[in-house]
Design a protein around this nucleic acid. Structure first.
Lengths: 248, 248
DNA sequence: TCGCGCGCTTGATCTGGGTCAAGGTTGACC
DNA sequence: GGTCAACCTTGACCCAGATCAAGCGCGCGA
């Protein structure tokens, strides 16, 4: 090929970890060059809205670093977060123009974007990209439905434990950290954002976190730095019946 | 083609209303013949479980008549319905083997099925089928996320009104009934099933339905037959800011 | 170094919806 | 037409979590 170095980089997907790698790994080098051509980066500051509900989206992409949330708001101001985007998560709705909810960067954030039309064209020409997108959408659907159980039937304490479980899992899989040690991570969300995700108030979130700390389920250093001494204990608290592959 | 009559039937899709028609309408006649070959029907009785959570699914398909629900259950018995399948809705997860939740027929039900492996083969060969599946999965994802707002942030009264809104809309679009009249339909769910969908108890569902009746938002004949004299009133009660295209 | 604001914690009180309990309705089957 | 079992309604009471309110602590800019 003309450009071995570039192809190499794309195959490794150093910039777009995980999600795109699964696509790229099966791409021919000319397809990779096409992807490179329509690819660009965008930076957002903490608190900035990436897409407003109803806005036209002219790109798809994935989070490289930082955290974003998908949020729905009622006229009277009640808000519900319907998705949490961590590094490597896909953003966008191939084949659709508008976004049905706000996408907000809750930390400084870098996105790797592809222009939408050319990406859709490529998708219709390359079945394994279309297939990968269906896979990812099914994953999101599963996650959304699991969250419906959390919102509809779990107590405040179980909700907090469920959220910590998700964040811990994502963090561990991203960092490929051995799972037999205590898990350590920083909460990427404020108490208010957690409340919006869990269908609670920020006061209840704060109280339940204090309770989990008092009961030794979690340890807290400052307001954000969390240690989970016993992950299976946390899973019990979350009311989950499976460990999602975290434990041996 | 060899079999004009059969092709004609498939193009009309008399048996598999709506969802498959959108696929079939763009299929070549040889593709339609292939679909016919892997197609079969299954009947279920009210209360029968179609697929148990974790079970292997060897088909995809759609509901022809009757109602099914997607349900998740915790070990202690708390259950949350995460999806409602009305006639024309798709069932199945192309590319995946197991179901993450129970699929239960809540009325007598007929399904139109396609054997899964050959369907997946066809899918990878015919881009417009793959595309249609992505569309449908995105629709389901939108519905799931909208429901997260209902579960997380709406009051019991708003939840009931939201459910009635959805059922009324679906019923009206299926029956192509003029929408300027009062809407009339039968509730396809017991009070308990509604409670499981809404994250409530059946007593609360019953009380809120009585309240909506007392306040003239709905009229009830027997326990199931509902009349909506003023749909926009119901939308207000649901806290929705859009009418989803029901009103002019 | 001070103060100021944002994010967080904690307390006191209130309330929507859950829980427990007692019937009422309807329809299928003998 | 009587019985029985779902399914539904309604009442009384309770409690988890919301609401209202006060204050803490840390980081940042002046």
């Amino acid at each position: 090929m003309l450009n071995d170095e570039k192809t190499q980089v794309s195959n490794e997907c150093a910039d777009c970890p995980i999600r795109h790698r699964a696509v790229c790994a099966r791409c021919e080098s000319d397809e990779l060059e096409q992807l490179e051509e329509i690819k660009y980066y965008r930076n957002f500051e903490a608190g900035q809205t990436i897409i407003w509900s109803g806005d036209r989206m002219d790109f798809v992409g994935s989070v490289v670093s930082g955290i974003a949330t998908l949020t729905q708001t009622m006229e009277d101001g009640r808000t519900q977060m319907v998705g949490l985007l961590l590094p490597s998560d896909f953003v966008g709705r191939p084949g659709r123009d508008g976004s049905p909810y706000d996408v907000v960067a809750t930390t400084d954030l870098v996105m790797c974007c592809f222009r939408k039309r050319p990406f859709e064209d490529m998708m219709s020409r390359t079945p394994h990209i279309a297939h990968r997108l269906l896979e990812m959408t099914l994953d999101e659907l599963d996650a959304a439905r699991e969250w419906m159980l959390v919102l509809g039937r779990k107590t405040a304490r179980e909700k907090i434990a469920s959220l910590l479980t998700i964040i811990a899992r994502r963090d561990a899989s991203l960092n490929l950290r051995p799972t037999h040690d205590a898990l350590v991570f920083d909460l990427p969300l404020t108490r208010e954002a957690m409340a919006d995700y869990l269908g609670l108030t920020l006061e209840t979130v704060s109280r339940q976190i204090s309770a989990l700390k008092r009961d030794g389920v979690i340890e807290l250093e400052g307001k954000r730095h969390v240690t989970i001494p016993d992950f299976s204990r946390l899973l019990d608290e979350a009311g989950d019946d499976s460990d999602g592959g975290m434990l041996a």
